[in-house]
Structure formats: C-alpha cells, structure tokens
C-alpha cells in the first residue's frame, strides 16, 4: 500500500475526510510539500586532446513513469542566437529537471551578457568558476542537479568540469553523472584512465607496469560513449530512449542523436 501511505491524512487505503486527524501528534511542524523530484537519466563527458564529448540520454521519468522519451539534458551555453549555433560551451544537468533548466537558463543568460559586454565568448575556466558560485549561491536550497560543463580551454585542449549540487568542482579527464553514474564511471576509469590495466608480463604485484596514459582519439571516445550508454540502458530503468551527444572541436559544436532502447 505504498501508494496510499504517501497520503499523510490516512494510514491506509481509506479516502474519507472524516478520518482526517485534526491535531498533530508531534511538536515540530514540517512542510509536507517536498520541492524536489528525481527525473532520472544519466550524463557523461569525456575530454580528448583537442576535443570533448558531452552526452546524455533523453528519457525523463517520474517514479516508474516515463514522462517523455525526448527531453535532452545537454545544452549549448552562451551563443548569441536562439539556435545557439555560435556557442562554445556545453552544459549537462541531471537530477531534478526543473532545477536543471533553471540553472541552465541562468548560466546561459550570464554567459550571454558576458559576451555582449566583452565582445568575446567566455572561457571554460571562467565559466566553470562562475557556475560554481551560482550553485553555491543556493547552498541552503540547492539546485538538485549534478552538472558537467564542457568546452575547449585556452590551449585548445578538451576540458571537462564536474560539479556537485552545491558547487564543489574539479577539472577532470572524464565524468559520468546521474542515475547510472555508478554503472558508467568504473567503466570510464578502466577505459579512459586505464585503471587496473598493466603491461602483460611486466612484473609481479607492485612491480607491474601500468599501461601508458595516451590520449584517446575521437573515434575511440565516441565508441566508448555509445557503449557506456548501451550498457547503462540494459541495467538501469531510468536510462534509455535516446542519446543526445555534443562534440566540441575548434570548428564548433556538432550535435548528434542516436536512438537507445525504449524498454
């Protein structure tokens, strides 16, 4: 009777107002309105030598329901047009979708104003710092999202910045976030950062030599992203339907969409 016990007025499937308790039992009053929900989904970002890829599935859920099969959570940030085709940054948000949208629009407005006032796009580094302060600004009523910011840094290298809901951030090689983060991240550790990969026959125990951390080429990274999501879809009910990918290179942002399993 999970469904009915959610109603605080009743202790079971009854639905009559005569049973409404008129006085509270406890001393402290608590809001019964809970301002958050989890809309599921997963995101993933990997940086390369001269590119970065941001990806996220497009399913939106409420509990066991699928709200829609197409609700992208990867966004271009700070373009001068409504189509954002001259944007240089991407942001992915996963968690509570309404907060995610609000965060995206706030950051987008700020980066747009920066571009208007300075006549040049904001650097990823600056934007990353700014995003952190936005998130921390709501430290006591947080945006319930895990954000990842992507772009190319001043040297043209791929940059991935990952966040927690209250603004702690760090630049990383790659990051998975959202519902299937715990499924995807270990895969990335192994396949991107070559964790637990040793050169065969190089020694015993601590003498083993780690595999060299060579930067991955674009085709390999793109394949990793697809594999990561195909695997996540298989094991997580909140992930699926479609994969929206953004590929950032010096030529701009390329958008890709791939279908995922809809079950």
């Amino acid at each position: 009777m999970t469904m009915f016990s959610q109603n605080p007025l009743m202790n079971g499937p009854n639905y009559s107002f005569s049973q409404t308790p008129t006085m509270a039992s406890g001393a402290n009053k608590e809001h019964s309105f809970y301002p958050y929900t989890d809309n599921g989904g997963s995101t993933l970002a990997i940086s390369g030598n001269d590119f970065m890829i941001m990806a996220g599935d497009t399913r939106s859920t409420s509990g066991y329901n699928i709200n829609t099969r197409y609700s992208p959570k990867v966004f271009k940030i700070g373009g001068t047009t409504s189509s954002q085709d001259d944007a240089t940054l991407v942001l992915s948000v996963v968690g509570f979708a309404a907060d995610g949208h609000a965060l995206k629009e706030k950051l987008d407005a700020i980066v747009k104003m920066y571009r208007y006032q300075h006549g040049k796009p904001m650097s990823v580094k600056a934007c990353a710092q700014r995003l952190s302060t936005i998130l921390y600004g709501k430290r006591f009523f947080p945006y319930y999202v895990t954000a990842i910011l992507g772009g190319l840094d001043e040297d043209g290298k791929g940059a991935v910045y990952s966040y927690d809901p209250v603004g702690s951030y760090e630049r990383e090689q790659c990051r998975a976030a959202g519902a299937a983060a715990s499924l995807i991240m270990p895969f990335l550790d192994n396949q991107v950062n070559f964790k637990n990969q040793y050169i065969p026959g190089s020694g015993e125990g601590h003498a083993l030599v780690e595999r060299a951390k060579d930067p991955l080429p674009l085709v390999v990274v793109e394949a990793l992203v697809k594999d990561a999501f195909d695997s996540a879809v298989e094991r997580h009910i909140e992930v699926g339907d479609g994969l929206s990918m953004m590929l950032i290179t010096k030529n701009g942002i390329e958008e890709k969409f791939l279908p995922l399993k809809k079950d």
């Binding site: 605080p8 509270a24 039992s25 009053k29 809001h31 019964s32 409420s62 509990g63």
Partner: peptide
C-alpha cells in the same frame, strides 16, 4: 509519479521512508 494528487510533490515512500504527517497542527505561521 503517484496518480493521486494528494501525493504530488511529496517525497517517495520507497526512497525517503513513510511520510511524517505531524505537520497537522492548527496554529503556527504557515
């Protein structure tokens, strides 16, 4: 989401445990 409007916007029982309805007092600022 639960279809009953009464449950909308409330934390899910399966995630947060059964809901504490002790807010129902007839005084207070709310």
């Amino acid at each position: 989401m639960n279809h009953l409007p009464q449950a909308w916007g409330r934390p899910r029982d399966d995630v947060y445990g059964p809901y504490d309805g002790s807010y129902l007092q007839n005084d207070g600022p709310n």
